[in-house]
Measured scan of single mutants.
Amino acid sequence: IRKQWHEDITQDLRNHLVHKLVQAIFPTPDPAALKDRRMENLVAYARKVEGDMYESANNRAEYYHLLAEKIYKIQKELEEKRRT
């Protein structure tokens, strides 16, 4: 379902936000690492998460909020795993 606010969101912005999700899960300073085949699954997962939020959000603010919440949860989980 195409929503009115979707018209304001460019593909570049969506790609940028997918990249932010990927960085939250696997922070790497090396952009070449993103071309690694093992990263493809991670990028696919991040695209799916972003797509789900894009579809479920009712406006741009909610879209950003859902993504920020997801990134926060991912970082929290990773922190907890590092501690144990």
Rank of each mutant, 00 (worst) to 15 (best):
residue 63 Y to W: 01
residue 27 P to H: 14
residue 22 V to A: 06
residue 6 H to W: 04
residue 73 K to Y: 07
residue 73 K to N: 10
residue 7 E to F: 10
residue 36 D to T: 08
residue 43 V to K: 06
residue 31 P to Y: 08
residue 59 N to K: 03
residue 70 K to F: 10
residue 39 M to D: 06
residue 73 K to L: 11
residue 48 K to E: 11
residue 26 F to G: 13
residue 24 A to Q: 04
residue 28 T to Q: 07
residue 68 A to R: 14
residue 12 D to V: 05
residue 81 K to H: 05
residue 8 D to N: 06
residue 10 T to H: 09
residue 65 H to G: 11
residue 43 V to R: 05
residue 80 E to K: 01
residue 59 N to T: 14
residue 28 T to H: 04
residue 13 L to C: 13
residue 44 A to V: 09
residue 74 I to F: 13
residue 35 K to L: 04
residue 63 Y to G: 00
residue 43 V to Y: 13
residue 16 H to F: 10
residue 38 R to Q: 11
residue 75 Q to E: 14
residue 2 R to C: 02
residue 38 R to I: 06
residue 47 R to L: 03
residue 69 E to C: 05
residue 52 D to I: 03
residue 54 Y to D: 04
residue 9 I to S: 02
residue 12 D to E: 15
residue 83 R to H: 15
residue 34 L to H: 14
residue 76 K to V: 11
residue 61 A to R: 11
residue 72 Y to T: 15
residue 66 L to E: 06
residue 1 I to G: 12
residue 6 H to R: 13
residue 23 Q to D: 13
residue 20 K to P: 00
residue 1 I to V: 05
residue 24 A to R: 02
residue 32 A to Q: 11
residue 47 R to Q: 07
residue 2 R to M: 09
residue 1 I to K: 11
residue 64 Y to F: 09
residue 77 E to P: 08
residue 80 E to S: 06
residue 70 K to G: 05
residue 51 G to V: 07
residue 24 A to W: 02
residue 28 T to N: 14
residue 38 R to E: 14
residue 64 Y to N: 12
residue 46 A to D: 02
residue 35 K to C: 09
residue 13 L to W: 09
residue 14 R to L: 01
residue 58 N to V: 03
residue 40 E to K: 09
residue 24 A to D: 01
residue 37 R to C: 12
residue 60 R to C: 04
residue 72 Y to E: 15
residue 60 R to T: 10
residue 73 K to Q: 14
residue 31 P to L: 09
residue 77 E to G: 11
residue 35 K to T: 13
residue 52 D to V: 04
residue 49 V to C: 11
residue 45 Y to K: 10
residue 36 D to V: 02
residue 69 E to A: 06
residue 28 T to E: 10
residue 72 Y to W: 09
residue 36 D to G: 12
residue 25 I to L: 14
residue 71 I to L: 09
residue 83 R to S: 15
residue 7 E to V: 03
residue 19 H to K: 12
residue 37 R to F: 08
residue 45 Y to Q: 04
residue 58 N to H: 06
residue 73 K to M: 09
residue 9 I to L: 06
residue 1 I to H: 00
residue 41 N to Y: 01
residue 79 E to V: 09
residue 7 E to A: 12
residue 69 E to H: 15
residue 60 R to W: 03
residue 30 D to F: 14
residue 28 T to W: 05
residue 14 R to Q: 00
residue 54 Y to W: 07
residue 70 K to N: 03
residue 25 I to R: 03
residue 7 E to N: 09
residue 30 D to P: 04
residue 45 Y to R: 13
residue 39 M to Y: 14
residue 4 Q to H: 14
residue 46 A to N: 02
residue 39 M to Q: 07
residue 39 M to S: 03
residue 50 E to W: 01
residue 55 E to L: 10
residue 78 L to H: 14
residue 14 R to F: 00
residue 38 R to M: 06
residue 60 R to G: 04
residue 44 A to F: 04
residue 20 K to W: 01
residue 22 V to S: 04
residue 67 L to A: 09
residue 44 A to Q: 10
residue 41 N to F: 11
residue 67 L to I: 12
residue 41 N to M: 09
residue 23 Q to R: 10
residue 38 R to A: 10
residue 54 Y to R: 04
residue 31 P to A: 10
residue 14 R to D: 00
residue 28 T to K: 12
residue 74 I to N: 07
residue 27 P to T: 07
residue 48 K to M: 09
residue 66 L to T: 03
residue 40 E to V: 07
residue 49 V to H: 00
residue 29 P to K: 14
residue 41 N to G: 10
residue 2 R to G: 08
residue 78 L to T: 13
residue 15 N to M: 06
residue 52 D to H: 04
residue 77 E to R: 11
residue 36 D to S: 12
residue 9 I to H: 00
residue 49 V to S: 02
residue 75 Q to A: 04
residue 82 R to A: 12
residue 79 E to W: 03
residue 7 E to C: 06
residue 34 L to T: 14
residue 79 E to N: 08
residue 31 P to C: 12
residue 61 A to C: 07
residue 82 R to T: 10
residue 38 R to D: 15
residue 69 E to V: 06
residue 84 T to L: 12
residue 70 K to R: 08
residue 26 F to C: 15
residue 9 I to W: 02
residue 18 V to P: 01
residue 45 Y to P: 00
residue 59 N to M: 00
residue 21 L to N: 00
residue 44 A to T: 11
residue 53 M to S: 07
residue 79 E to L: 06
residue 30 D to G: 10
residue 51 G to E: 13
residue 82 R to F: 08
residue 11 Q to A: 09
residue 66 L to C: 10
residue 6 H to P: 07
residue 41 N to L: 06
residue 41 N to R: 09
residue 50 E to V: 00
residue 39 M to N: 06
residue 77 E to C: 14
residue 63 Y to R: 00
residue 84 T to A: 09
residue 72 Y to M: 12
residue 84 T to Q: 10
residue 53 M to E: 06
